[in-house]
Amino acid sequence: MGISLSNISKSYKKVKAVQDISFDVNPGELFGLIGPDGAGKTTIFRILTTLLIPDDGTASVAGFDVVKDYKAIRNSVGYMPGRFSLYQDLTVEENLTFFATIFGTTIEENYDLIEDIYVQIEPFKDRRAGKLSGGMKQKLALCCALIHKPKVLFLDEPTTGVDPVSRKEFWEMLKRLQKKGITILVSTPYMDEAALCDRIALIQDGEILEIDTPEAIVNKFPKTIYNVGADNMYKLIQTLKGYKHLYSVFPFGEFVHYTDKRDSFETAELKSYLENAGLIDISIDATQPNIEDAFMELAK
């Protein structure tokens, strides 16, 4: 009852959107498709929701083929497209009622599934969807996608443009839905959300870089990463770029992430190199890699 893609490719005119994509999502899994804008995430969603026909390869959702059995898939999945696709001029309640009706059900019938999400927006049920905040639109869109009790839920960038509090709440909701046995495929450009998924696929330029659990991906990172800090960030980066043992340097918030070509080295040596270049307040500490480090290493 999960999702399966094998060797899926799709081009628009000359542009290759996705190339030779294969992965499986197990039933009941929360699977994340992580990658920047233009990586091909939406194309994959549209193929799986039967909106696009792949040029090559096969895919199935809940056991149904995405081309042959498209009608069966359309009956059994919930889909939340990238922009919260709601009717702006209908109220919260009218939107939900409408989507319930076209799926041949009622709000009451499946209320238990959406209850803990819907209670948060219920105080605004007579407000038009266009007048809701990003976070509330997101919750309403999720309710609409869930109202017919889908077996598989497709969420295309559900947290884009939403404030951090709503994002956190949203992920908590996904975890609860997962417990109810719904298979969830979610995409996001935010690397920090990767850790919240059971397994993730890192994707860039239409190709998959890696598929695994977030922990395993991070653990595979081949180098030791050092947080290097100094008084002048620009000068620090430029100086490090001139260091002969440099493997990579990337700004990372208040520090830079530095990796060395050698398997092991003395941080004192690097420190004196930086001091000689005129930098002060230098700090060098080994740190844990995160998904972004892994992504950049894989995308190289």
Binding site: G35, P36, P189, F250
Partner: peptide
């Protein structure tokens, strides 16, 4: 930098 890949972002 919303939505760009991590390398470009850096």
């Amino acid at each position: 930098t919303g939505g760009v890949d991590p390398i470009t972002r850096r």
